[in-house]
Design a protein around this nucleic acid. Structure first.
Lengths: 218, 218
DNA sequence: GTCTATAAATAGATAGAC
DNA sequence: GTCTATCTATTTATAGAC
């Protein structure tokens, strides 16, 4: 009976170790960036030995890339869901904004990581992650083309629209520590994520709609 | 006559050194971030001895902060100019967007640096820089309040509006290297800064205007 | 003001025992 | 799978000559 006891426990421990490393790494990378993040600190935060990180993820870069890949996969999944759910192009744009906001809100480590990755020129973006990125932008392009075909939206660069969505969302989510730091000297930094999402939806549709007003339809 | 010759030449060289260091540092910090930037590389890029950096700027952090301070001063100046020029609140919002875009476009190093600074929680933002930041946001708030008083804009959080402006602009400008990298596999990333500014202006006004359409008035 | 040499600390990564 | 000990390279910063 206990023949496989040891392997099983080892596997369980391995999974637990991976999970603990993952959690500590997301925090560290989000707060410090890739170069600022220290493997020693990740190990300490995870409560595991440093060598385990290299055992499970090969290298600091490997660990970082696994996190990026996972999150971009989730975003691509969510956007695919938006397309599958259908609806008017306007509704899909709203859903697109909400979906991306939701994935990011679920992964507070992602916005700061992504901002830095952009600033870094996508140095750590491997082909798999780039593929997800491309797929998402393509799906947004489809939504916009449907809107243009229906005459309710003017033709717009998907990338431009994406900037208008991801820019404010990411900057807002990533700025939480900064907002907290300045909230004592400057009022008006206390905005909810829901307010931001709604503002972005209104703003984005206001920027591409041919209709007079793009009021929200709850 | 040549009594002061040496001091003068020294001063000139000092200014030249500072300028060369400044130029190399902006490039390095923009491309690598604070932690990723290496003092050796800045010295090499500037063509000066590494020790000069410490002589002129005290430390790596001191150099970084001097750059941040300078740029934020320029932004605050530009926005003060927008207020001074007056005009309708809508015109001022457009001018505000254009002014910030212009300062940033003049300093290509700034967008990536700022994105990382946000992601970092403003770790390097000293009180002087924070003051400029605060002043800019206050002036935007005044414009919005005037618009609300005139009835042409609905009340809006200045910070929310700021996110809608700076988010897309910064992300666009900072993503130049990334866009270049992906331009071969994905079309549609080739957008001009003017197109972005116009899109942001339309989008932002579309998000806060009470009027039916916030068409641009050239 | 500028340069050489070097101190002093840190960090990514691995070998090898258990 | 996990831990100890350590190697190697890198990096910020400074002392001191010119």
């Amino acid at each position: 009976m206990p023949v496989r006891a040891t392997p099983v426990r080892q596997t369980r421990n391995a999974d637990a170790s991976r999970a603990k490393i993952w959690g500590a790494a997301t925090t560290e990378f989000a707060a410090q960036g890739f170069d600022g993040a220290k493997v020693d600190r990740i190990a300490a935060g995870a409560g595991v030995n440093k060598a385990m990180i290299y055992y499970h993820f090969k290298s600091k870069a490997g660990l970082f890339n696994a996190i990026l890949h996972d999150t971009f996969g989730a975003i691509a999944d969510a956007v695919r869901g938006v397309r599958a759910a259908g609806g008017t192009p306007e509704a899909q744009v709203r859903a697109y904004v909400a979906a991306i906001a939701h994935v990011a809100d679920d992964r507070p480590f992602f916005p700061p990581i992504w901002l830095r990755e952009v600033a870094q020129g996508g140095r750590h973006l491997d082909p798999a992650v780039a593929g997800h990125f491309r797929e998402v932008l393509t799906m947004l392009g489809e939504i916009l083309r449907e809107g243009a075909a229906a005459g309710t939206m003017r033709p717009a660069h998907p990338f431009l629209v994406q900037l208008g969505i991801v820019g404010p969302l990411t900057l807002f989510m990533a700025s939480r520590p900064l907002r907290k730091k300045f909230s004592k000297v400057h009022q008006g930094l206390d905005v909810s994520i829901d307010a931001v999402v709604e503002h972005v939806q209104t703003m984005v549709l206001g920027g591409i709609s041919t209709q007079k007003a793009a009021r929200k339809s709850r």
